[in-house]
Write a protein that binds this DNA or RNA. Structure first.
Lengths: 263, 263
DNA sequence: GTTCAGCATCTTCCATGGAACATGCCACGC
DNA sequence: GCGTGGCATGTTCCATGGAAGATGCTGAAC
């Protein structure tokens, strides 16, 4: 409650005008002033989050595909709500880089160019290697628990690979990387990495069939898990980095080769 | 225009209901469907962005301080606009982790706990070392141009340090790191890193006076710049990482020591 | 055939009011 | 004194309508 004792009139400058900021009023629910930061922190379901989830899922699954255009009115009608919650959901999606809202014109789903994919990969490489490092630096029981979890997912990938089930393989691969990110104990890092992976999910799915058999991934994942289990933070980070770099170096030439300008 | 030839009726699943997605309608402004992603891409000034900037600045400069609470109505009144644009600006700020909007209760500026600072540092370490790596991997003229720019900023830091002007030093230090991030050529990485640095800016300013004289930073910055100039990507990344790690390891104990629970 | 002005249409942006809900206060019962 | 129910107040959430602006079409002028 130390804030309440401080001088309680600040000034907010807006368009050159100086406005006084009001005295503080403390309420019980303000006890937790530190960041919670979980995406939509268990708050009551609202139409905004409904719209957000529906649209995000539609974009992820290529139902509302890149290049598609729509108006807020139209989406609102389709979702059975008014324009306001749709508008606010679109703001969030724009913030995450999935759509673009053009004033007075409409909203469009963004495509990813090969250059965009290059950007996305670099960000993922940076964040994911840090995540691997953080996990490997944890105390032993925690570390081993996560290593076991990752190992199980990797086993699924292996069987999917043996049966040549590409979709199952892709699902397990996604799970592996999401687990790596979500278990690192850094909610901010997890949030950013998940957002950027959502951006590239669609492209990954579309290029899945272009690639040769993905035998290396399982082995590289195993190497990462081993480093985590042994608590070798630097090694785990390096291996995670190398894994993603290899994947990137295999994928990007394919995009150019097949002339996929936007996906 | 290849999309226009595809089957033009998709389905959007919402709350269990299946909705048909409409035919596509192409318009001239849709030519650029690939991500632009600059924060508020030169779009016409709107009340929303006005509110967003005013509030962000107020939070950054500790005018609208952590723990402060307000209602949208009140902020709108103060800014001379209606509640809607304020509401939308707050959504964006919440997305960036600066405030929390609690339904039916109000909006509060979030404070950062020492654990939050730890998270922020890990993310910055990951992104900034990648940025240094990317710059060092550029072609020589570009690389040298950026190295010169960074060197100039670092010179300002040095003089500020000699004159013991802490504020000037902090400004130059911030400039150095922003330049490192903004020049890396990866707009996504730059955007994420800027957002996370905005989160921690206030805390950095508040702890500025707690720290001992910051003589090491200038030397470490010089080392980073040297690696960039020589095109040693891995070395540049490592040095950027080490620099931030050292700063973190100096700062975090101070926070605990002074019992700064939220800042 | 070509150009260009005017108009109809469509779209987002913003203001405003009602609904739903959380909270704090106060009177009341015990 | 203590607990409890109801009400007044304050807040966000959402619906709706008007304003401003961008676009494309139509038709007239040449």
């Amino acid at each position: 409650m130390e804030h309440a004792t401080r001088v309680n009139c600040f000034h907010l400058i807006f368009h050159g005008r100086v406005c006084a900021w009001p005295a503080l009023r403390y309420k019980s629910w303000m006890n937790r002033t530190t960041a919670p930061l979980d995406p939509s922190a268990a708050r009551a379901p609202s139409l905004v989050t409904d719209a957000y989830r529906a649209l995000k899922e539609a974009i992820r699954d290529n139902v509302f595909a890149p290049g598609d255009q729509g108006s807020e009115q139209e989406i609102a009608l389709r979702l059975g709500m008014s324009r306001t919650p749709v508008h606010e959901a679109l703001i969030r999606l724009q913030e995450e880089g999935l759509v673009r809202v053009v004033p007075k014109r409409g909203v469009i789903v963004l495509a990813l160019s090969p250059d965009d994919m290059r950007e996305v990969y670099d960000v993922i490489i940076a964040l994911e290697s840090m995540a691997a490092e953080l996990i490997a630096a944890m105390a032993e029981p925690e570390r081993h628990r996560i290593a076991a979890e990752l190992h199980a997912i990797n086993a699924d990938m292996k069987t999917a690979l043996q049966r040549d089930e590409r979709d199952a393989w892709a699902r397990a691969d996604d799970q592996f990387h999401r687990a790596l990110i979500d278990r690192c104990g850094n909610t901010r890092l997890a949030r950013l990495a998940n957002t950027i992976m959502d951006q590239s999910h669609r492209a990954r799915m579309m290029t899945l069939r272009l690639r040769a058999k993905m035998t290396k991934s399982v082995k590289e994942h195993q190497a990462i898990v081993a480093a985590i289990r042994n608590g070798e933070a630097a090694v785990a980070g390096e291996r995670a980095k190398a894994h993603r770099q290899r994947a990137r170096n295999e994928l990007l030439p394919l995009l150019d080769q097949f002339g996929m300008k936007h996906l």
